[in-house]
């Protein structure tokens, strides 16, 4: 793996300092990093999983709507951002690895470096009480 571009390194550094759960993915959707607050929501530890291929992490959580119907991948904010390179947001339920059903809101935005290099995306999550 070649070293990461500066923008993703700084993105990860930034996320590492936040108390907001956050995800960092490359242009293919591979999960490069998630921070400690995200570990709490998802019941995973980055130190144990490391980065994950998109096929791997997309199957771990089953995002659902309020009625419990699984969401189509193209309706997920992060997937929208990855395909359109524009910010997206939405709300959903996920089942975390501890078996709990967690309501979350997600805001995703693309990472576009200088001068116009599309490098990946970041998603921030809020545990929401109601959707």
């Amino acid at each position: 793996m070649p070293a990461q571009p500066l923008e993703l390194i700084l993105g990860r550094q930034f996320m590492d300092t936040l108390s907001i759960p956050a995800f960092l993915v490359d242009t293919q959707g591979n999960l490069l990093f998630y921070n400690e607050p995200a570990e709490e929501i998802f019941g995973l530890r980055f130190g144990e999983t490391g980065g994950m291929k998109v096929e791997e992490w997309a199957t771990i959580f089953t995002p659902m709507d309020a009625k419990g119907n699984p969401l189509r991948p193209e309706d997920l904010p992060l997937v929208k951002t990855l395909t359109t390179q524009v910010p997206a947001n939405g709300s959903m339920f996920i089942n975390n690895l501890n078996g709990e059903r967690v309501p979350i809101s997600v805001s995703a935005f693309p990472i576009i470096g200088r001068p116009d290099r599309y490098l990946g995306a970041m998603a921030m999550f809020w545990k929401s009480e109601i959707i």
Binding site: M1, P2, A3, Q4, L6, I9, R12, Q13, D16
Partner: peptide
């Protein structure tokens, strides 16, 4: 230090390594 994760142990996440 600012451009690196877990400096100096992670070359792929260190600015300027390449």
């Amino acid at each position: 230090r600012l451009g690196s994760t877990d400096f100096p142990n992670n070359p792929d996440w260190t600015s300027g390594f390449e």
